[in-house]
């Protein structure tokens, strides 16, 4: 393929990206339709000293971190089990953990209304056992948001971790055991270091996804437990304050980029020259992030 024809092939794609992504995002930051760019920067500066917005930002980051850790704790053992299972069973287990990613987030989050709602499963169990007299307030809490997000993102964590774990030759672990290491020690010294790239990618994706998630905090947190995403929505479509909406947008994007750069650094120094290519970026990123 000549350079000229390769260049021509780029034209429609670059044009669409420029028109549908680069232009609107840059224009929003540099020239908002109402007010000026200095307005957005000024509002952002004001937000960084505003206790209300800061508490929401803090909650958002806290939810992101807890979600990341919880989905790692739930997902890693599954990924490890899949990587060690015989091919047929591994295929079924992998498909079962991928399937939820194909389902709308609204559907998956709705299920928590059935569990945590006023007449839901959990409140029925609690009042039925006589633990509480009245149906407790379970919805519209931070815990509800975390539960919903962990359910949403565990599959993504499983896929990322499995991407690395499936590259670990099980004979290495057996060799370590044969040379006298306990199974815990073999796991820690042999499996874990090789699994780290997948864990790092999975954790970054889940954190970024949880911090920017909208559906789950909207349905399970409501107006009582706002996150940056629901705050942005409020500014943009309820109070129609675009300057503030853009400022929150910048804030949210900065958090995600900062974490991306940070884990990119850590990952690079840990892995040396080896790139984390073995993690299935296409599918893991694809099905997961689009699903939020």
């Amino acid at each position: 393929m000549s350079r000229r024809s390769a260049g021509l092939l780029l034209v429609p794609g670059i044009a669409l990206l420029a028109f549908g992504f680069v232009f609107p995002v840059c224009a929003m930051l540099l020239a908002p339709p109402e007010g000026d760019a200095a307005g957005v920067a000024g509002r952002l500066g004001g937000m960084l000293t505003d206790g209300y917005v800061l508490s929401i930002a803090l909650r958002t980051v806290r939810i992101g971190l807890i979600t990341m850790l919880a989905s790692l704790l739930l997902g890693f053992p599954v990924a490890y089990a899949i990587s060690r299972a015989p091919a047929r069973r591994a295929g079924v287990l992998l498909a079962l953990s991928t399937f939820p990613l194909l389902l709308s987030t609204v559907v998956r989050t709705y299920s928590w209304l059935v569990i945590l709602g006023r007449n839901g499963l959990l409140s029925g169990v609690l009042t039925g056992l006589g633990i509480t007299a009245h149906p407790p307030q379970l919805l519209y809490t931070e815990t509800a948001i975390v539960l919903g997000l962990v359910q949403l993102f565990t599959p993504l964590m499983i896929l990322s971790c499995y991407g690395s774990l499936s590259q670990v030759d099980s004979r290495l672990e057996e060799a370590a055991r044969g040379l006298g290491a306990s199974s815990g020690r073999a796991f820690r010294l042999v499996v874990l270091p090789m699994a780290l790239p997948g864990v790092a990618v999975g954790s970054t994706l889940v954190f970024a996804g949880a911090v920017t998630a909208f559906t789950t905090p909207m349905l399970l947190g409501g107006t009582r437990q706002r996150t940056l995403a629901t705050l942005l929505y409020d500014y943009a479509s309820v109070s129609l304050d675009w300057t503030s909406a853009s400022a929150v947008a910048v804030f949210m994007t900065m958090i995600v980029l900062a974490v991306g750069v940070l884990t990119g650094r850590v990952g690079a120094s840990r892995l040396g020259a080896r790139r984390a290519r073995k993690v299935p970026p296409a599918t893991a990123g694809a099905a997961g992030e689009g699903a939020v």
Binding site: G20, F21, P24, V25, L232, A249, L257, G260
Partner: peptide, 18 residues
């Protein structure tokens, strides 16, 4: 790059500009 920017933010930008 579209993956990096939160979708809600892209949505806001598209709404305002396009």
């Amino acid at each position: 790059s579209p993956i990096v920017v939160p979708e809600l933010v892209v949505g806001l930008a598209l709404y305002q500009q396009l």
